[in-house]
Design a protein around this nucleic acid. Structure first.
Lengths: 344, 344
DNA sequence: TTGTATGCGTTATCAC
DNA sequence: GTGATAACGCATACAA
């Protein structure tokens, strides 16, 4: 039985210091005035005892837990992990703690996971991926989000739901993808293919739109046969690529809507006995950590992971402390030119 | 001000159901007897109101938070992430929540991070990597762990510290590494090199020992020049490989103490104009997700991520509930033969 | 400047 | 089988 943790409490400190618990609490929070002399004495006792306030008790008392729920689609995706990492580090530094919920791995549904975490009295939620990323989320999901958002602030990373206390931090993916499409075109490619993940998601459909728009702007025809959609998995990227390679008239450059797909596409190209970028150029999106180490280094677009994460947390904090903060913040992305796409 | 969350409490339920809060609490916990009729009535009100008990209050009352602190060295390492993912999912399913602390990214030191998390009244700690993995951790660190372990159970994944409430779940890395060394030898390689991460860590030094032992058992001489140590980073694996390639008499197979190093080693081999496995064979350890997708697929050893994570959590639970549980559990690993190591 | 008393939302120990 | 009531550890309004 380890229940008996016989922790030191504020009462112990008060007794040893010869003051009331109110005074101890005052030096703890540092908000109210305490005579310097007594403050010192109390602080000394605190140090001697290695006393640490019980954050659970404090949370119950304050109705603020200094805790944020983070619902992330999939930790196995390097893009998501990096953001979680950044968010976690930032939170730790400001005395917050993240409670993670991993959507895809959880057997129940997304809103159920939301409730499980909400029971722990988080001060807000951050959404990264998941249903919030769908073009047309189910009404039941939207209703639930709307209800929760009445109680707590919610921040969406790279997606957007327009309810009262909902915020968004996102990369301007339209602009970012336009950037890389333009780059590929500038490499003199006339026959450009596109491999995507699941349709019906913002991160997919937006890029398909942009792809077509930019080609149109350059008076280049869009060959629908060269746009192949699958899932956001390496194997899916591979099979999509094979599909393109099998074409009689195949593209000289294949763009992918994320790096995971590009990884699969490049792999498949090699397996087919061809080389990237000599036989076919490939590009990605996100700049996950392995992209610069892959062979060849993947030309892609780098999102500002750090800002994405930090701003998401900051929006929650602002909301909680009653400060005004913009509902939506958009970030730029950077084109990372490496070796997987060559100039013809 | 969102402080006013006007949550529904157990009092509201009690009032609406016409019973006392004690009765509501009874149906909530389900431990004590309640007349079926009143139980139904109360449950109905609970459902109608979508009432969810406040876990913060419950934790304060029970002195059990249903929360576990997980200190992980580095979330950017795919090996660690996978374990965290597994642990998180298992915890969610049993009503627990993990509080992560990311050691390397945290500016302070490891024990400070430990205290930050302990303030949240976690029921135990899981350590993954970090100083616990060192062969000779500093005394100050050991003292701190010993102190904390008097209050809370601690589980080490793939490392071991021998204090009262400390547990260990680990892959038998000695046996596992011996397995792959034997495999490489069985591929007729006579000249085998070894690339490692930082010395002074269990995961490194143990493998070096095993490497030498197995070679000796096969009456093969150990060439110290072929053992090159660096850090557990892709770039380090790359530069170590270059060092080996620069040798007049170089090995035909290069083993790495983890997959990250193998990634770098293979990359560098290609950059040097050579190919894996035709010019040099390479092996890894851990089987991170990208290893099977790399070109060539990396021959490596797969740890049982799922068991590693689940058993760690279970040991905490057992300890908390006063059940006996073995101090140490050892798991087997599986040799994953792919394409990066060929038979001569 | 400091102390007393109350509340935060539960669970658990008593009585009844 | 059920209902008061006292913890749990802290912050704070109000008094002194």
């Amino acid at each position: 039985m380890s229940l008996l943790k016989d922790h030191i409490t504020i009462y112990d400190i008060a007794r040893r210091a010869g003051v009331s618990i109110a005074t101890v609490s005052r030096v703890l929070t540092g908000k109210e005035n305490v005579k310097e002399e007594t403050r010192k004495k109390v602080q000394q006792v605190i140090d001697e005892c290695n006393y640490e306030p019980n954050l659970i008790a404090r949370a119950l008392c304050n109705r603020i837990s200094n805790t944020i729920g983070m619902l992330v689609e999939e930790l196995s995706n390097p893009f998501f992990v990096t953001i979680c990492n950044e968010a976690e580090v930032y939170c730790t530094n400001i005395g917050y703690t993240l409670l993670f919920g991993i959507i895809n791995s959880w057997l129940g549904n997304e809103t159920e996971l939301l409730h499980i975490i909400e029971k722990r009295q988080v001060d807000g939620f951050i959404f990264l991926g998941g249903k919030a990323n769908q073009i047309n989320p189910k009404k039941s999901f939207l209703d639930e989000i709307r209800k929760v958002s009445k109680r707590l602030p919610i921040v969406f990373i790279n997606s957007k739901l327009d309810f009262a206390n909902c915020y968004t931090v996102r990369t301007d993916e339209r602009q970012a993808f336009a950037k890389i499409v333009n780059y590929v075109i500038s490499c003199k490619h006339k026959k450009i293919g596109l491999i995507t993940g699941e349709r019906g998601f913002v991160i997919t459909d937006e890029k398909i739109e942009v792809f077509k728009e930019v080609l149109a702007r350059h008076k280049m025809p869009v060959n629908e046969e060269w746009i192949v959609s699958g899932q956001y998995l390496i194997d899916s990227g591979a099979s999509s690529m094979q599909q393109l390679l099998d074409l009689k008239d195949r593209p000289t450059a294949v763009m992918c809507t994320n790096d995971t797909l590009a990884l699969g596409a490049i792999k498949q190209t090699f397996l087919a006995g061809l080389t990237v970028p000599d036989d076919v150029s490939v590009t990605g999106f996100d700049d996950i950590f392995i992209s610069k180490h892959f062979i060849p280094g993947i030309t892609t677009v780098k999102q500002d992971y750090h800002q994405l994460a930090e701003l998401a947390v900051k929006k929650i904090l602002s909301h909680v402390s009653g400060e005004h903060c913009p509902k939506e913040t958009t970030l730029d992305a950077e084109l990372m030119i490496r070796d997987s796409c060559k100039t013809l």
